Simulated assay, not measured.
Amino acid sequence: MKTEISEKAQYLLKTLVEHYIEGGQPVGSKTLSDHSGLPVSPATVRNIMSDLENLGFVASPHTSAGRVPTAQGYRFFVDSLITVSPLASFDIENLNKNLDPDMSSHELVESASGILSEITHMAGLVTLPKRDQTQLRHVEFLKLNDNRVLVILVLDDHEVQNRVIYTKESYSEVQLKEAANLINRHFMGHALSLIRSKLITSMKSDQENMNSLMQTTLEVAEQAFDAKQEADFVVAGQENLIEMAEDQALNDIRELFKAFSLKGDILHLLDRCIDVEGVQLFIGAESGYQLLDECTVVTAPYQADGEQIGVLGVIGPTRMAYERVIPIVDATARLLGAAMDYSRR
């Protein structure tokens, strides 16, 4: 698309987008002529703007009210017209202060979501780490009543998870303790998903010689380390979207709040980003979800132990300060990953 637009038109488009992001009002030809620094008259600007409108980069919301960038115009602006600078040292220090490696993974995710919202004044969201990358430090099985067992998982990031499972057989406290000891002895430091699969593979391959302890361990472990749980995300700063919304977009933003409560579409969008390197932007309809048509989603994956285990980002109006938001999302992902790495040592 870049070859279709002259350098003069590109410069005027950049000026228009920057003015609209700053002020939120349609930008007229005289304003562009006065602020572009180009030796062009308002009449020339009008002709160029008309060409850009025909190409789909700008639109006229009202007759003689100036023009605003479209999602296509924002996309061209982000891809071709801005230079993203590294985050300032002050912002890096602020992020580091809020991403303490001594926090659990869930605390780190909540803090990252909050700091993204605080710095960008938009909605910050972070997915919880994929469980198949989480390593086991210790497990205990405690008998409750009937066939109910309390599972206590101590994970590699200082987090303790409790869950209740239901077994086919009613096991004694001694049987459950022996099963936990077997798992702790052989699988401490292993990924949760591998514990389950290795146990099932090794024990089912030798079912004829399987003793009572192995049977107990297999049934309890199949449920305790079940990796079918759907990843979730933490969101902060949804109220910022209401404050930043244009009048005509308020209904769309209110609908977006419903999406936060339903979570499914947003989770699916974030999951699409986990295997992609670096910052991703979904501007307007690019996300594929109608509720996000008036928004931009900026995401980046975060890593631990060299594996991409989650995604973070911000959701805001398409009229956002891209040169500011992109490096914030990028730096937060890197620092969150570093904190996750440190917490697993």
Rank of each mutant, 00 (worst) to 15 (best):
F76E: 02
I309F: 09
L269Y: 05
A339T: 05
V154F: 08
E173F: 11
R319N: 02
D91S: 15
L52D: 02
N98S: 15
G278P: 08
D157Q: 08
V27P: 00
R46G: 12
R75Y: 07
G24K: 05
D51N: 14
E53W: 05
M188S: 14
F57W: 03
H106K: 12
Y302I: 10
A339K: 01
P26F: 04
G56N: 11
F260V: 07
Q135E: 15
N162A: 13
A333I: 14
R319L: 03
L250W: 11
E4H: 10
T127E: 04
L12S: 00
S197R: 11
L16N: 00
S197K: 10
V311N: 04
L150D: 13
R137Y: 10
D132V: 13
D51W: 09
G23W: 04
E286R: 04
E118R: 05
T318D: 00
E277F: 07
K2R: 09
M244P: 00
F233P: 01
D156M: 06
R67W: 01
T318H: 01
P101V: 07
P317Q: 07
L213E: 15
D146E: 15
L38Q: 12
G24Y: 05
I253M: 14
S117K: 03
M320K: 01
G73F: 00
P69K: 01
A71G: 06
